[in-house]
Design a protein around this nucleic acid. Structure first.
Lengths: 251, 251
DNA sequence: CGGCACGTTGAAGTGACTCAATTCGCGTGG
DNA sequence: CCACGCGAATTGAGTCACTTCAACGTGCCG
């Protein structure tokens, strides 16, 4: 599985979409047929580039095909506070479908490929395959659950916050199949980790160092490697319930 | 407008629901007719009582009719971290419709009245009036936007966080019409304010005192009174864009 | 009157921040 | 091929805001 498929076809993109939704929702034959009727446009995004900006009124929604994106707020002093990280299959700005104006921005953390779906097509899909739209709704609810967890995580110390970030990322990477052994992609510098968990660079450094010394986890050249999952989870007070990774229990 | 209607009829409850959704979405005649076909059950909840608990698998969703509710996480040490506050018209656990198991709890901050809607009825509604379900979806997206804002707010100092809470609550209260002059209901003790913004009691005390001394806002016997809206917003770095209170711009 | 919840205030401790200096890895141009 | 420069990681010193702990006031309800 190449990190950057040379030129993903529409079919591959739609595969990814269906696969993502099927991970937590039941997708009927009819739903799948309608989903495959969408016409995504795939484009490449440079590392650090913005895809959507606060205040925009997009008329498309995007899906991550490869690479990693981040949503962020811009603080009054100009700093960036990252709100969430997004990997293949994620739909980071699905909300723009219903909330006219963006209340945050989306940028690429490394070179990434994104698929864009016109809102008009999605809205048409909603009419023709309502149960497929419920899958999208559920997807956005899980998204919200992750934000709630982020609020609480700020209660713990620096090590706990970083450890929690590692746990969440590894768990989500495992779900989409981008892990190999105990490693998964993690293209963030320490400065960027600081923007995610809301701590300063020196603090992040000490926290990551502590986690490496205690053989919990380490980051090296864009990869996160788990050294001791059990211990890492304990440091993080990680309880994956909020990721709602279990299969749907209703239809 | 009594704080606790003696015994709200189903009609009044459905009025509130339609009114709430119409605030940000276009509700067609057909949608409204279908919404009014729901059969809510109204019940009274004692101050401090839990309505749903983490780990539950509810088969109903609730709407606040009067009073104030809070969603909260329970920290490893037993502390409660409030995630959001909810007033009349809010649907705090709409997510339970699609996410089987609750990842947080909901409790009443004062004596409150809540309406319960069976999931089965809502799902039936979704089938019969898809566009009404889009209004519910949008509602849950605004909910998520508030969580995102909460993450960023933790960046500022104690005074800024408390001020931001005051701004948000007053703005939302104004939207549902529970303000009178520059006052709105706010039944939280300083300890509870601490649970919302993630600070200790003494810090909250000093922050509220500072806001009163600077004639920004004050809390008195369950009421929040704005003394100087402009100055309060400045202290809070409050930008209401994330509340998406503007009317819907698409159908 | 006694208990209790909440508000008020002070003193001491601690964790993270800012600021700053140094090192390392790596690509680039002389 | 080496010097340079840049981004990132590393480390230390001093400061500040919030925490914890503790004590006391105050109003209300039994």
């Amino acid at each position: 599985m190449a990190k950057h498929p040379v030129h993903p076809t529409a079919t591959q993109v739609l595969d990814l979409l269906v696969e993502t939704l099927a991970r937590h929702s039941t997708i009927s034959m009819h739903d799948e047929r309608e989903l495959r009727g969408l016409h995504p446009r795939v484009s490449k995004v440079a590392r650090g580039a913005d895809i959507v900006r606060q205040g925009d009124r997009p008329n498309v929604s995007i899906m991550v095909v490869s690479g990693m994106l981040a949503r962020y707020h811009t603080a009054p002093n100009g700093d960036h506070q990252y709100l969430s990280l997004h990997i293949a299959g994620d739909l980071p700005d699905l909300q723009s479908l219903f909330l006219g104006v963006m209340d945050h921005s989306v940028c690429a953390l490394n070179e990434a490929q994104v698929a864009t779906f016109p809102h008009s097509q999605i809205l048409a899909l909603v009419k023709r395959a309502p149960s497929a739209s419920l899958a999208l709704w559920r997807h956005s609810l899980i998204d919200a659950a992750i934000f709630r967890q982020a609020i609480t995580s700020k209660g713990g110390g620096a090590v706990a916050r970083v450890a929690h970030l590692f746990c969440e990322q590894f768990t989500r990477a495992r779900a989409v199949g981008t892990v190999s052994g105990w490693s998964c992609p993690f293209p963030l510098s320490q400065t960027q980790i600081g923007r995610v968990v809301g701590l300063s660079l020196p603090t992040i450094h000490r926290a990551t160092q502590s986690l490496r010394k205690e053989h919990c986890a380490e980051v090296q050249s864009g990869t996160l490697r788990i050294l001791n999952w059990r211990r890492l989870c304990k440091q993080a007070h990680f309880d994956p319930i909020y990721l709602h990774a279990d299969l749907a229990e209703r239809d």
